[in-house]
């Protein structure tokens, strides 16, 4: 475990020192600015910015931050420095996940907290949204980080495009084809966790959306992270580098 924590700590340190992290972090705060502006104009501060944060900003922030960097580490073989140490290879993935989840989690937590504050200050406050939105986005970040670590390990050459492709299917294509498939949407479930209106990004062609359930949302988030991570662990154990 100490090896995983060391990798996590270094992952955070590297992220803090990477200029691209700071640019990507700005994505997490744009919905808050938009929310403040919309709230000041008398519109709901969350109606558009919250889905924007969940569906667009969070994936655009997390995928390059996590999958891009880890994929590059595999491609450039810097992971070799980890894999010739006396630890199981999956420990490195666990460490990367912990570090990535912590760093992107803090950024999304802060971005969504600012959005919740903007919502509160513009008269549309609800205590529930103030508390639930940041923690829902934190959970969203943790799941996306796990998903990204898994994708980067499974496809180190094109991790970002593969991750974006998968998210385009689960977040947009499937729910817009058949409403019950909203259940596979990570962003949808994050909004459910936040207690917000979780309409699909695009209207569904057919079907009725399932009733929101916090339990289902948590399960989907867990599965979304666990399946790619599990496949990655299986792959990395005996894969040639």
């Amino acid at each position: 475990m100490s090896a995983a924590l060391s990798i996590a700590r270094v992952s955070i340190l590297r992220a803090v020192r990477r200029p691209s992290s700071w640019w990507l972090s700005a994505l997490a705060f744009l919905p808050a600015l938009l929310g403040a502006w919309l709230g000041a104009k008398g519109y709901g501060a969350l109606a558009v910015p919250a889905p924007l944060l969940a569906y667009v900003a969070a994936p655009l922030l997390v995928v390059p931050w996590v999958a891009g960097v880890l994929g590059e580490a595999f491609e450039r073989r810097t992971v070799v420095y980890w894999f010739v140490r006396p630890m199981a290879r999956p420990t490195a993935l666990l460490g990367e996940w912990l570090g990535a989840a912590a760093s992107v989690g803090v950024v999304l937590l802060l971005g969504s907290a600012m959005l919740a504050v903007a919502n509160a200050l513009t008269g549309n406050a609800s205590i529930g949204s103030l508390a639930r939105l940041p923690f829902a986005m934190l959970a969203h970040a943790v799941a996306l980080a796990g998903f990204s670590v898994g994708v980067a390990t499974l496809s180190p050459r094109h991790p970002v495009s593969l991750a974006v492709g998968v998210l385009a299917v689960t977040e947009v294509a499937l729910p817009s084809l058949w409403a019950p498939l909203q259940v596979v949407s990570l962003s949808h479930q994050a909004l459910v966790l936040a207690g917000l209106d979780a309409a699909p990004l695009l209207p569904s062609l057919v079907g009725t959306a399932p009733a929101p359930s916090v339990g289902v949302a948590l399960a989907v988030l867990a599965i979304f992270a666990a399946v790619p991570l599990g496949l990655a662990v299986r792959t990395v154990i005996d894969r040639d580098l």
Binding site: S6, R77, V80, Y81, R85, P86
Partner: peptide
């Protein structure tokens, strides 16, 4: 076992000391 691979890249954001100390931690 100690291994110096052929690759020229490290975790570029770290200092030399941080990089080597990190790998020392992974060595136990």
């Amino acid at each position: 076992l100690g291994y110096a691979p052929e690759i020229e890249v490290f975790f570029e954001e770290l200092t030399g000391l941080e990089f080597v100390a990190h790998l020392a931690e992974l060595s136990g």
